[in-house]
Simulated scan of single mutants.
Amino acid sequence: MDEIVKAALKKWPNVPHCYGWLALDARGDWYMRDERIQAAGPFPQIKGSRINHEKLREFIARNYAADEAGCWFFQNGPQRVYLQLEAAPWIWRLDEQLRLQSHTGLATEVEAAWLDEADRLFLSTPLGLGLVHTADMHLAARAVEQGLWQPEPTTHAELLRRHGVVLEPRPAG
């Protein structure tokens, strides 16, 4: 977490949390969802405005975490902005050497692999549960063919339950 964010938390510890304004899709893109977009329909059917500003994407990535309930958020200064997730909190990218990296740029290693009912490939890593980016499935297939990963069948709901992931956090009460 950025030092400026930590300082803001100390200065303003009781800022209310924000829900529904930020989302992460299955391709690792962040989306802003203002009131008009939220009223137009649920994520991911109505995505909102994709965040293209590189520095803002980097700031979100550096301050991205989960709470004890499995809800993912971006700590924006003193305000915790909870995310809606299309599929998982991490989107995995692979390079030609089959090295794994998150959509936020963190390198990690595969611990387990699953295919859900939609034939999406999910991987568990020390960072947590994530979905392999669709553009990298040819590389993931190579890892499976080489015996590096042995995906087990499961359902998306079961993966979320097992890993304690909440796709759409809501305020308590």
Rank of each mutant, 00 (worst) to 15 (best):
V15A: 15
R57D: 12
L127V: 03
R142K: 08
W114L: 00
A87L: 10
L127I: 04
N52T: 15
L123A: 05
K6D: 07
L159K: 01
E96I: 06
V110Y: 07
E145H: 02
L115N: 08
I4H: 14
G128I: 01
A112E: 13
P171I: 11
L98W: 01
R161D: 09
E158K: 08
A23M: 06
P126R: 05
M1V: 11
G147L: 07
Y31N: 13
Q146V: 03
R50D: 10
A8I: 00
S49C: 13
R57A: 15
P126T: 07
I4E: 14
N52F: 05
F122A: 00
Y31L: 11
A140P: 09
K6S: 07
P42M: 09
L9R: 14
W12F: 15
L94T: 02
E158Q: 15
Y82N: 03
N14W: 06
T125Q: 01
A87R: 15
G105L: 09
G173E: 10
D25Q: 11
W92A: 01
R170S: 12
V166C: 07
Q84L: 12
P78N: 11
G130R: 05
L131W: 09
G130V: 08
R62Y: 02
Q84H: 15
T104A: 05
S49T: 15
D29Y: 14
E152D: 10
G105N: 09
R99H: 12
N63M: 02
A65I: 02
H156Y: 04
L129G: 03
Q146W: 08
E117T: 05
E86D: 08
I60F: 15
V166N: 02
A141R: 11
A7D: 13
E109R: 07
R33N: 11
P13K: 08
A66M: 12
W149T: 00
C71N: 10
E111I: 07
K55S: 14
V81P: 05
W114N: 00
R162S: 08
